[in-house]
Design a protein around this nucleic acid. Structure first.
Lengths: 111, 111
DNA sequence: CTTCAGGTACGATTCAAGTCGTACCTGAAG
DNA sequence: CTTCAGGTACGACTTGAATCGTACCTGAAG
């Protein structure tokens, strides 16, 4: 069966503040960067991101990303799919996703 | 006399996380948006932004923007100048400043 | 010198966010 | 049915960020 698509904001309602807030966290930015790097935009399982945090925290981060309008979460009951809302993001904030690749791997300077 | 330029990070050391964190705050985003809207990039006094917050909090926000590498602060002792680091930002994160104008005045949807 | 406005330093407060522990739900496989 | 892994709900803890109050510094104008 298809799975229910948990709802986020409409494309026109994307808020730049919420988007920046979502992308300010390193773990969430890592997720979006990985999603943006795959131009085929395949749905991915949420275990495919190798996040060094607990399940509950991952649930939290994916929810923030969805509520910011950056991803769709597809609920299969005991499993969840993640898909980047590339078209909506590019329509509202063209060039934003390209910025995520501009960061050197491992961050800029050691803090 | 010239005034001392309070130091921020080098252009190559701009950190995307710090930039997103800086722009996540509505007051700081307002400052950068106003600066980005003026293509002449004139130095501005820090009272010219009409921020509805106290002096101390303004000092805090300008410091965050400077440490993120988004602005220069020029110290005249009892007065301070603000200048957008447009060239550095565009070099490192091309298109970022253009995104700030993409938000409808007053925010997207009433929360 | 004194006065005064612009700005900073430091501390306190308040609130949001990231994290995890415990318990529970969901669907698939035995 | 039971078992089990993936995921969520709720609460608690902790840290960081935004804000302001008080006090102090800086330079210009009397």
């Amino acid at each position: 069966m298809a799975g229910k698509n948990l709802v986020g904001p409409e494309a026109d309602a994307l808020d730049l503040g919420a988007v920046f807030r979502a992308l300010a966290d390193e773990h969430r930015r890592s997720v979006v960067t990985q999603l943006a790097a795959d131009r085929s935009d395949n749905e991915r399982g949420c275990n495919s991101f190798d996040l060094p945090i607990s399940k509950q925290t991952q649930t939290h981060h994916f929810r923030v990303l969805r509520e910011a309008g950056l991803i769709d979460e597809i609920d299969y009951g005991n499993r969840k799919g993640i898909r980047l809302r590339r078209a909506d993001i590019e329509k509202r904030f063209p060039g934003l996703l390209a910025l995520l690749g501009a960061e050197p791997p491992g961050g800029a300077a050691p803090h």
